[in-house]
């Protein structure tokens, strides 16, 4: 693998790992799997991703690339009627609560959400996760 000097004005990190956090790998793999299922074409995907990465404010070092990727995936799934923003917000909040309620070192399970008895099919409770 090449290892020349990082180019001035261009982002460094010629041989950086493919994914820097596990959720990035999962978001990528879900996209590949959903395409294999025929949910969207790569042309549709490229359009959705391009819309996100070309928004003003995208980081010039590209560190937020998978954040754009996730936003593109969410919008495409919402447009296809597969997963609405409200449902994703509510479920993401439940996952965050479940994580907080899980002792360190134990696997995080959605059942650990202290409010899981409230049910997940109800309306979004307004504590939607940040991001996207």
């Amino acid at each position: 693998m090449s290892r020349h000097e990082a180019a001035a004005g261009l982002p460094a990190g010629i041989d950086e790992p493919v994914f820097t956090e596990p959720w990035q790998a999962e978001a990528f793999a879900m996209t590949v799997a959903l395409h294999d299922k025929g949910l969207f074409s790569w042309g549709e995907w490229a359009d959705a991703l391009a819309t996100e990465v070309n928004r003003p404010g995208a980081a010039s070092d590209g560190h937020d690339y998978y954040e754009h990727w996730l936003a593109a995936l969410e919008k495409l799934l919402s447009a296809k009627g597969v997963a609405g923003k409200g449902d994703v917000d509510a479920l993401a909040a439940a996952w965050e609560r479940a994580a907080h309620a899980t002792p360190h070192g134990k696997p995080i399970l959605l059942e650990n959400d202290p409010r899981s008895t409230e049910g997940r099919s109800g309306p979004t409770n307004g504590r939607g996760g940040a991001g996207a």
């Binding site: 956090e21 596990p22 959720w23 999962e26 978001a27 879900m30 959903l34 998978y66 954040e67 996730l70 995936l73 969410e74 799934l77 597969v82 997963a83 449902d87 994703v88 917000d89 509510a90 479920l91 993401a92 909040a93 439940a94 996952w95 965050e96 994580a99 907080h100 309620a101 899980t102 002792p103 360190h104 134990k106 995080i108 959605l110 996760g129 940040a130 991001g131 996207a132």
Partner: peptide, 21 residues
């Protein structure tokens, strides 16, 4: 990560999508 588990907002949203899908 010094007290309990934490999912950052992006990781939580990915888990939410995984659950639904």
């Amino acid at each position: 990560h010094d007290h309990d588990n934490e999912l950052d907002p992006f990781a939580a949203r990915v888990r939410a999508l995984e659950t639904i899908l």
